[in-house]
């Protein structure tokens, strides 16, 4: 597999702030790659640098092995699904989708035929004559997708494309996008602040914070072995044990991440450490039990039909050694 997009110490500074701070990153051809980070972390700027809408202040971006600094966005084999979809409000849906062919000088019948095909692919056949304002959010999103695919890009960039949709539609689109990417076989680069999306959709993803890549890996790798406290907190709501607490539980003085679903509650004195139940939140299929251990708390996910100790009672916490992950750095 070859590298589709390569970041080589790429930085993007604005007047006072550094949006992207010396990022190195390889995105493979044909993979579904996600960039996950909180808002303002620089992930959208990364996307704009790949598409060419923005340019790095230092470093290089290689696209299929070619340095891109002299290639404007209109000549990159890359298209974008914008966060606000950026549909042209004055053009019919069909003409929106056909726009990429229009500017290439493709004749009208041909570009309309092709646009119809793409509308069919995103399950919007028959919507071609409508105006974007007459569509629902989910439909607009599909139009934006069809429009971005009409030029047969080798890389498709998606900037939080599901952010504006409601939960059910979002889940449906997650699946559809994944299927689409697999059938097209092209690279998808997907920006999101939703860790669930990154985990469920991507082949690999990068966690970005304050303009830097904190960790890159497959969802399993990152979920099970977060490299830093930030990652542990951001990906899945892991417990993070301070070195002091960790040494009381394990005898190792490292920051340690511990996923709540592997923690088992028991009677006092029967586990690694004892604490007091602080609160119990009912989550439907399970209960989230917060256990107080001096200054810190550890959360445990317990099956809802299992009896749990009431709030205020003393409990022990236990887990297997492979369920925890010792982090190399803070």
């Amino acid at each position: 597999m070859s590298v589709a997009v390569k970041f080589d110490t790429v930085s993007r500074r604005f007047d006072t702030e550094v949006a992207v701070d010396g990022i190195d990153l390889d995105i493979q051809e044909g993979e579904f790659f996600a960039m996950l980070g909180p808002s303002g972390s620089g992930k959208t700027t990364c996307l704009r640098l790949i598409s060419g809408i923005d340019r790095p202040t230092s470093g290089h971006i290689e696209i299929f092995g070619v340095r891109s600094e002299n290639i404007p966005p209109n000549r990159r084999p890359i298209n974008t699904v914008f966060q606000d979809y950026a549909l042209f409000p004055h053009l019919k849906v069909l003409d929106n989708v056909a726009y990429g062919l229009l500017v290439r000088g493709v004749a009208k019948p041909e570009r309309h035929r092709e646009a119809e095909n793409l509308l069919e692919m995103v399950k919007l056949q028959g919507f071609g004559q409508r105006m974007p304002a007459q569509l629902s959010g989910g439909q607009r999103q599909r139009v934006a997708l069809a429009r971005a695919l009409i030029n047969k890009p080798r890389v498709l960039l998606l900037d939080e494309p599901l952010g504006a949709l409601d939960l059910k539609l979002r889940e449906q689109m997650q699946e559809e996008l994944k299927t689409l990417q697999q059938s097209l076989g092209i690279t998808f680069v997907f920006v999101t602040h939703d860790q669930g999306e990154a985990l469920s959709m991507s082949d690999r993803f990068a966690i970005i914070n304050e303009g830097k890549v904190v960790q890159v890996g497959s969802p399993q790798e990152i979920y099970q072995s977060p490299r830093t406290r930030f990652v542990a907190h951001f990906v899945g709501s892991s417990n993070v044990l301070s070195p002091a607490l960790s040494s009381r539980c394990n005898g190792v003085e490292n920051w340690t991440s511990l996923r709540p679903e592997v923690v088992v509650l028991g009677d006092p004195g029967q586990g690694r450490i004892d604490g007091k139940v602080k609160s119990i939140r009912y989550l439907g299929a399970s209960n989230y039990v917060s256990v107080e251990l001096g200054e810190e708390t550890i959360g445990a996910l317990v099956n809802a039909n299992e009896m749990t100790a009431p709030v205020g009672s003393a409990v022990s916490l236990n887990w297997t050694a492979d369920a925890q992950h010792l982090m190399d750095e803070e």
Binding site: I63, F64, P72, K152
Partner: peptide
């Protein structure tokens, strides 16, 4: 297709201005 190669160069004055 043109779009799949990076090396393609249009060099009309308009596109040079865009660049």
């Amino acid at each position: 297709m043109n779009s799949t190669t990076l090396t393609v160069r249009h060099s009309s004055p308009g596109s040079r201005l865009t660049d």
